[in-house]
Design a protein around this nucleic acid. Structure first.
Lengths: 204, 204
DNA sequence: CGGGTTAGGTCGAACGCTCGATCGGTGAAC
DNA sequence: GTTCACCGATCGAGCGTTCGACCTAACCCG
């Protein structure tokens, strides 16, 4: 039987995370359904059956990849928000946090973006809750920004939230780290594009 | 042998398009790799082998779905642009065209957005060319807008292009037609969010 | 008009392959 | 001697694709 999280040793945790990282790149490359456990077995240098010591099904593997990354990105955001009061700075922190995490964990973030539908039942429910927690956090920041800047009420907050995530999550489709646009500047571009439209939009 | 496009009868073309529509909803639901030709056979009421009269492989099926929709959306955009001179109105037309087509062809557009990587070889090359044609069209309009409004040069045109497509293509993840935000208004929201940030962004 | 040939459209059965998962076993560590 | 970490062999299911056969409507030639 695989260990539960309370009795997890250091070595076990490290190897599991290594497997999750390799699996994330394979899922990101070929898509969850097209990728096979045998691919992971080969790339990780572990026998097919040996893998099942670390997870109990392919779907649990997908779940763990998504759960861990979502937790890390939200934790990291909450951490940065603690030092900030200005709503526009909070929004800026959100964009920079998301983009920088996205670029340095491109495989896992792509899996989160593209393979949510591959989850079923309780796995799906739990990931949906984590996603909701994140997007609610974003919506609340946008609400503060609107109150702070006295902006119009043209664009509904949920539409603005999804537009922002759309901009940021589309990164995988075109951006390559090491391009002539450094990650830091990419984040600032996206922040200004969005914030300019969000705080500037007025009825005609 | 399946007919070629020049000798295509009316009935043949109609039935093929019907199969493509059903296939698009299945691919959108389950993902290309997870969906099976047998699923299509059941939903379309055609025998498994009978399907191969209309296409020669699962991948060609995916290709035809993407190719036809991309062609239609670009043709429709070019048509609308003909009557316009004002760059901001052109940008507005692009957003409205994309969003309205996206919403009324959600399944096919989702396949285009998510299953590009599933194509290989020549199929992939041809779809890449069509995508490039579309995004170049968008970039050129943004260049005109920038010249017209005398906006700053803060955000590179390609970054702005991808940000805009990201906003629009994320629709599948949250928007449901018949929600309390009508499609027309959704398009206008996205246009104002983007245009406000794009024409308004200045160096600090 | 009538018999024979062709072409369009469809089908059931089957082939060869890959997949996720299981099971009994093995050896080292404590 | 129990627990941890891992493995080879195998199972049953589902996959994309092919093949030969079938039916029907249209067409040609006497």
């Amino acid at each position: 039987m695989a260990q539960n999280s309370t009795s997890t040793s250091h070595d076990y945790e490290e190897k599991l995370q290594g497997l999750l990282d390799v699996a994330a790149t394979i899922f990101a490359d070929k898509g969850y359904h097209h990728a096979s456990i045998r691919d992971l077995s080969r790339k990780a240098g572990v026998s097919l059956s040996g893998l099942y010591y670390y997870f109990s099904s392919k779907e649990e593997l997908l779940y763990m990849i998504q759960e861990r990354s979502l937790r890390r990105i939200v934790d990291s955001l909450r951490d940065k928000l603690e030092d900030l009061d200005n709503p526009e700075e909070k929004l800026r922190a959100l964009v920079h946090n998301h983009v920088s995490f996205y670029v340095s964990n491109m495989a896992a973030m792509r899996v989160i973006t593209q393979e949510y539908d591959a989850l079923e039942g309780e796995y799906r429910t739990k990931i949906r809750e984590r996603r909701l927690e994140y997007s609610n956090l974003c919506t609340e920041i946008l609400r503060e920004v609107r109150r702070f800047t006295g902006g119009g009420d043209v664009v509904p907050l949920n539409v603005a939230t999804f537009a922002l995530f759309g901009m940021m999550n589309w990164i995988y489709a075109w951006y390559r780290p090491g391009s002539n646009v450094p990650t830091e500047r990419l984040a600032e571009h996206l922040y200004r594009l969005f914030a300019g439209g969000f705080t500037g939009a007025r009825r005609r």
